[in-house]
Design a protein around this nucleic acid. Structure first.
Length: 479
RNA sequence: CGGGGCGUAGCGCAGCCUGGUAGCGCGCCUGCCUUGGGCGCAGGAGGUCUGGAGUUCAAAUCUCCACGCCCCGACCA
């Protein structure tokens, strides 16, 4: 660490983000442009994200599997709009074993096609349905403008792929998974999100309908934090995924896909972080509590460490993720700042005075300085800690929601709209036409994020063209 | 893929204009001292100056070419 202070978010939000990711040791740049090395601290966060999602997938009947990294290029070409959408960003393997391949292989940008191939083989009867499979993997899309976690050439994610007998079942699945993402974002990550439907131009290549959850970052920009697609019968027709129904008639399946990526880590960073650095929501934080022992003499050191170890064991036994910072030669003050920068939600300070009094100091990451510090008895420490962690979790959500509300504007005129998207979200009537959407983008740089599922009802005038509209949309500049 | 910026110690930079001994800050190592909000002092290690070609007695420095990275725009989880 060369300079000790981060740039503030107000000075340079983008640079604040880059630095905090590197200094907190979440990730590092790789030798190939656009690729990312996820460091242990960042991966620990991802593991907590995957665990929270995976249990929700399992609870709704999904199972995990693994499909290949390499896909015959002809597969990608089988679904018209899918090729059109993805061909500019494909990585293609042309050689293997020292020879040019007869058919180039695409490194998966997503797995609809190879899974479609497998489903066509596996599904014959309505009795085989539904198929509810998820896979955890990484995919490659040749991005030209990259940023750690938010947009990298290779990224880690989960992709769920399901096949159903009817449109209704596929529609239910699509919405159910959107609900799961919403629940995960709100309850685990303390990130308020707006679930909604994507416009035609923002739809996934090959989907009939795309839904997303949209979150507001600390600079007022939007981030798509998860997506769920109803693929209709498009892939089923391209790959001949068919089943024989009860009447003995061949039907094409209805398929869905849904994904959430390491991009979500970017959302956590930008939704909760402050000028000191990261703030992780307790439920996902790699370390929920860090212990900083404080001592001068050798005698103090042994008694403080002994006590700290005892407390650590109690906390671990209570299921709390604890880090003990026993580094020699760095001052406690340094450690305070270091762990604050790295986003640990709660810090436990213990020194000779605390050992004598049977107390500790607990300092909340979400409330800087003295205000967030409290003296707490070592008796029932685990219970006190658990309670504080819950409070922090809640206050992070409340704070993020308040910020989003303060920066979301219901705009009546186009002038108001233009001002709104400078600061945050515009929630405005929209006629639904792509031309209006394109014009808005051209003139304001804001894009149609989603049409929230939660609509006020009634009608209003499209913010751009003035036509009577039935729905309101979220518009914002986006990552 | 267009525009801009930058490649010199692990990181951040100076040196380049005006060619001639490789420098500073932070970090790292050792020792002492300190430790309740980013300690201090002393000593030390660490460089094919992104690569290639050219000009020159001599190139980090001048010329040309290549490569890489970052930032800003068009396309995307």
């Amino acid at each position: 660490m060369s300079d000790q202070k981060l740039p503030t978010r107000g000075e340079d939000y983008s640079e604040w983000y880059n630095q905090v990711v590197l200094r907190a040791e979440l990730a590092d740049y790789a030798p190939v442009r656009g690729c990312m090395i996820v460091r242990p601290y960042g991966w620990a966060l991802w593991e907590n994200i995957t665990a929270a999602l995976d249990s929700r997938f399992k609870a709704t009947g999904h199972v995990n599997a693994a499909f290949p990294l390499l896909i015959p290029r002809s597969f990608i070409e089988k679904e018209k709009s899918h090729v059109a959408g993805f061909s500019p960003e494909l990585a293609v393997v042309t050689h293997g074993g020292g020879e040019e391949l007869e058919e180039p292989l695409v490194i998966r940008p997503t797995s609809e096609t190879i899974i479609g191939y497998a489903y066509a083989k596996w599904i014959q009867s309505y009795r085989d349905l539904p198929v509810l499979i998820n896979q955890w993997n990484s995919v490659v899309r040749w991005e030209l403008r990259t940023k750690l976690f938010l947009r990298t050439l290779e990224f880690f994610w989960q992709e769920g792929h399901t096949a159903h007998a009817t449109f209704e079942e596929a529609d239910f699945e699509t919405r159910q998974m959107l609900d799961i993402y919403t629940d995960f974002a709100v309850r685990e990550a303390a990130v308020p999100v707006i679930p909604g439907r994507k416009s035609d131009s923002e739809r996934f290549a090959g989907a009939d309908q795309t839904f997303s959850i949209e979150a507001m970052m600390g600079d007022g920009k939007a981030l798509q934090a998860g997506t769920s697609h109803n693929l209709g019968q498009n892939f089923a027709k391209a790959f001949e995924i068919r089943y024989l129904d009860k009447n003995g008639v061949h039907q094409h399946c209805w398929t869905t896909s849904w994904g959430l990526s390491t991009r979500f880590i970017g959302a956590i960073i930008m939704v909760h972080g402050d000028d000191q650095g990261l703030i992780f929501p307790p439920r996902l934080a790699p370390f929920q509590l860090v212990i900083v022992p404080i001592y001068k003499t050798e005698d103090e050191k042994s008694s403080v460490l002994e006590c700290a170890q005892k407390l650590r064991k109690e906390l671990v036994a209570a299921g709390i993720r604890v880090k003990m910072d026993e580094r020699e030669g760095v001052s406690p003050g340094f450690k305070f700042n270091d762990w604050e920068m790295r986003g640990v939600p709660l810090r436990l300070e213990i020194g000779p005075k605390d050992v004598a009094k049977g107390s500790v100091v607990l300092a909340r990451r979400d409330r800087p300085g003295k205000e967030g510090k409290s003296f707490v008895s070592q008796q029932d420490l685990a219970a006190s800690v658990a309670k504080l962690l819950e409070e922090i979790q809640k206050s992070l959500y409340d704070r993020a929601l308040a910020f989003r509300n303060a920066n979301t504007f219901e705009t009546a005129t186009y002038e108001e709209f233009k001002k709104a998207v400078e600061k945050g979200f515009a929630f405005s009537w929209w006629c639904g036409r792509s031309e209006c959407e394109a014009k808005i983008k051209e003139e304001t740089k804001a894009t149609m994020r989603c049409i929230p599922l939660d609509q006020p009802g009634g009608t209003g005038k499209c913010v751009q063209c003035g036509e009577i509209s039935k729905e309101k949309g979220i518009f914002a500049r986006a990552y």
